[in-house]
Design a protein around this nucleic acid. Structure first.
Lengths: 161, 161
DNA sequence: CTTGATAATGGAAATCATTTTCAATAAGAA
DNA sequence: TTCTTATTGAAAATGATTTCCATTATCAAG
């Protein structure tokens, strides 16, 4: 039964407590957006989220989708990604069925590969760097972005032909 | 004589050969944009570049600045950065007086710190990761983005007060 | 289970960065 | 100096995201 989202229930459903706990109400649009993000491993734009939510709840408007994504992003429940195509993209951050991962972006065809390799290696590096930077610059580091950009197999080949 | 840009001449002035070599003409706007980017260590938006160029050459229009930045970015002479404030920012990539560095971004006040520490460490990690990813996904990696995001000293303190 | 205060919503209009259009201009090969 | 054509500038178009504001729905309190 695919689509049931790997490790089960929507990110653990802890998000609801998170939302209520911060004094926000639990509304249809908020549930719907979380539902959509939980049941995909794609990196959806606001409009794409809107379309999917709209299928279930035609009354929900695009404006609300933007507001909701912003809220969830602010709470750290959702990651906002920039792949350089002029629109923000979103994915569940913690509890994502994908786990900790980063992105490999083809600058030609805009394909995005999520990779989880080298993460061990990376965590070591990140830990050292974060600690060092936090100390030296008195910064409270909350997040990091690591992306590799280049040409995917197809675009690379197409270039050389 | 500050402003003369540390290690001297505009990124080595090799860029002109690069531009001509690729069949592009050497024009006032192109020189002016390179001049502006060479003489600052800030991360300028297109509009900011426009204003500075405009001071010297009032005839140059904003559209051309956009086009020029796009061109220079395509040639790899300029890096396009995204700090999440809804506008692209630019800096000289190679030959920059700043050398290889990454960014530490305050998500509250939008201050950006360029850091060069831990780069050695990082290069090792990057090398391994790039090689591994390139192989596994048959990807030609051309660039990477590493950012740390969080709260700077001031915003952190202001939060706790 | 009501009720009421007010957070949240939806649609339309507004913003704002960036892109496109197109006629006028200028770089540079000949 | 001339000519071809890349480049430019101004204005209009675009497209993502935000703002406005009157309406609606959540949920704490009764």
């Amino acid at each position: 039964m695919p689509g049931r989202n790997g490790r089960g229930r929507i990110g653990g459903r802890k998000w609801q407590g998170m939302v209520r706990g911060c004094g926000y109400r639990l509304t249809i649009p908020r549930r719907a957006v979380m539902e959509v993000l939980s049941s995909t491993d794609e990196h959806l734009s606001a409009e794409e989220v809107y379309h999917r939510v709209h299928d279930q709840y035609p009354a929900v408007g695009l404006t609300t989708i933007y507001r909701t994504l912003e809220l969830l992003f602010g709470l750290g429940l959702v990651s906002r990604l920039d792949f350089g195509d002029g629109r923000a993209r979103y994915e569940l951050s913690a509890g994502s069925p994908k786990g900790h991962h980063h992105h490999l972006i083809c600058t030609k065809c805009r394909k995005v590969i999520d990779y989880t390799e080298f993460i061990k290696d990376e965590l070591e590096f990140l830990e050292r760097a974060e600690k060092g930077l936090a100390e030296k610059y008195d910064f409270e580091i909350r997040d990091h972005v690591i992306q590799f950009r280049g040409l995917c197999k197809d675009c690379k080949d197409r270039n050389n032909k």
